[in-house]
């Protein structure tokens, strides 16, 4: 017999070894997330996928599904807190959407829309962060990095290159590039690498492609992130 657990009253089948996120996606239930991508080892750091499992907060992307779990995914409290966590990401970096090439295709922005976020709530850090435009085809704008490590994992697990890492502690944490100069141009990154295309925000961009799709016709200008994520990731979870 298939094992099941319950999310917001809906029965979700799962197989041993699946996380709550995997089982939920496969069953068509969207759980907010940014650092998770079914292609890579779950990370559990953004905390947007926090769900309540039998009374306890857990990261759905790393927490194993088990028989009879009672999971709350959608509640006023969880969504308000997810909004605050998203606002934390917005004030930590320098996210000026109108001047960002990624606007409309940005998952950070789309999650904010999804959570009905209209402001940043907290005081801004306005940290001075660098832009690395040294590479001929790819650039890094550290102002927009949210430390999800998707590029780190993609480079390691798909490209087999280890181009990226996260260095430093606390609020001084930064994405670093594995090259003698620390610059992207001296790294092994190629424009065709998975790591160059995986960034959920506008921190890693492919040069000369930013406006090939006009603003107003981009992914999240018309589609909600829950539908987009389920369409692309639910399938990946099935395999």
């Amino acid at each position: 017999m298939t094992k099941t657990f319950v999310i917001d009253g809906k029965t979700i089948p799962f197989e041993d070894g699946q996380t709550i996120m995997q089982a939920a996606s496969a069953a068509g239930v969207y759980i907010t997330h940014l650092c998770h991508n079914p292609q890579f080892t779950p990370h559990g750091s953004c905390k947007l996928c926090t769900v309540n499992v039998n009374g306890r907060n857990c990261s759905a992307c790393t927490f194993p599904a088990s028989e009879g779990q009672n999971v709350t995914n959608i509640s006023k409290e969880l969504n308000e807190d997810r909004e605050k966590i998203t606002q934390m990401l917005f004030v930590e970096g320098n996210h000026f959407c109108p001047s960002c090439e990624k606007t409309g295709n940005c998952q950070l922005q789309a999650v904010a829309y999804h959570l009905n976020m209209t402001d940043n709530h907290f005081p801004h850090f306005f940290e001075n962060r660098e832009v690395d435009a040294s590479h001929p085809d790819v650039m890094i704008d550290h102002n927009r990095c949210i430390f999800c490590t998707l590029c780190v994992r993609a480079s390691e697990q798909v490209d087999g290159k280890n181009v990226f890492a996260i260095s430093g502690r606390g609020i001084d944490k930064r994405l670093v590039v594995n090259s003698p100069s620390g610059l992207l141009k001296d790294s092994a990154l190629d424009v065709s690498d998975c790591a160059a295309h995986i960034c959920p925000t506008g921190a890693i961009l492919i040069k000369r492609t930013g406006y090939s799709v006009p603003i107003g016709q981009r992914i999240y200008d018309h589609a909600h992130i829950d539908a987009v994520a389920l369409a692309s990731e639910g399938e990946a979870h099935d395999h």
């Binding site: 953004c46 934390m88 004030v91 005081p123 430390f147 430093g168 502690r169 606390g170 609020i171």
Partner: peptide, 21 residues
């Protein structure tokens, strides 16, 4: 705590610094 946060997760990385402020 703001100094010692490892910075892995958002609530602690950003939150402890906001709390300090």
């Amino acid at each position: 705590f703001a100094h010692e946060s490892c910075g892995f997760c958002t609530p602690c990385r950003v939150g402890t610094s906001l709390l300090k402020k």
